[in-house]
């Protein structure tokens, strides 16, 4: 076993360390030697340089949370978004209930009805974020790419159970142009077009 491990086959080299002083005099001499070499100011120079850059050249390295937030990966799974159809602006959700069914924390509920246009209307839709574990199953199962995860990760609230209603999650109609497709769990594959087979049509 140990032979096969090949430990120590590389060319390790010992650094030459000065022996650690043992007497009080020896220690005093070492402090003196290090200080007089002005190593401290080397460090301070770096600090001042970065401070200057941050204050006067706009190269700040920290963010002023909560006034500022770091951009988050588009694949991150935070509070859900309900998407709209780009052409008509109508919400994409068809009320199929698959997300409700698949949700392993049983936190999605929806009310649907037969509307005046003989279509299935989603009357109300809620997610209980006190229970949601952000597994992303709903986004994966959705046949319409209607429910996706978004980037809103702050889920602290005054109550354990905080709900989101359909309206809260739906892309505001005036922000329709900014609506982005979700590239995460459940999105169509980048080469989806190649895999599509056309159904023969008689007209």
């Amino acid at each position: 076993m140990s032979e096969k491990k090949r430990v120590g086959v590389q060319n390790y080299r010992f650094i030459e360390l000065e022996p650690t002083p043992t007497t009080a005099w020896g220690k005093f001499k070492r402090v003196l030697k290090r200080s007089v070499k002005l190593e401290l100011f080397v460090g301070l120079k770096v600090t001042f340089r970065e401070m200057f850059k941050a204050l006067f050249m706009g190269e700040m390295h920290t963010v002023k949370y909560p006034l500022e937030k770091l951009p988050i990966s588009p694949r991150y799974r935070a509070i859900h978004e309900m998407k709209r159809l780009l052409e008509s602006g109508h919400y994409r959700c068809i009320g199929c209930g698959l997300c409700e069914k698949i949700c392993i924390s049983d936190c999605i509920r929806m009310d649907t009805r037969y509307d005046e246009n003989q279509r299935k209307e989603v009357v109300e839709y809620t997610i209980n974020f006190g229970r949601c574990i952000f597994c992303g199953y709903c986004a994966e199962v959705c046949p319409e790419l209607a429910i996706t995860h978004g980037g809103r990760y702050e889920t602290a609230s005054e109550q354990r159970a905080s709900f989101s209603l359909f309206e809260d999650m739906l892309t505001p109609i005036d922000k329709l142009k900014e609506q982005k497709e979700y590239p995460g769990f459940g999105a169509i594959s980048p080469n989806a077009d190649e895999n599509i087979k056309k159904t023969p049509l008689a007209y």
């Binding site: 649907t112 009805r113 037969y114």
Partner: peptide
């Protein structure tokens, strides 16, 4: 049934 139509999925 037009009364029931679209009000619930069978499995619910």
């Amino acid at each position: 049934s037009s009364d029931f139509k679209y009000s619930s999925n069978a499995w619910e």
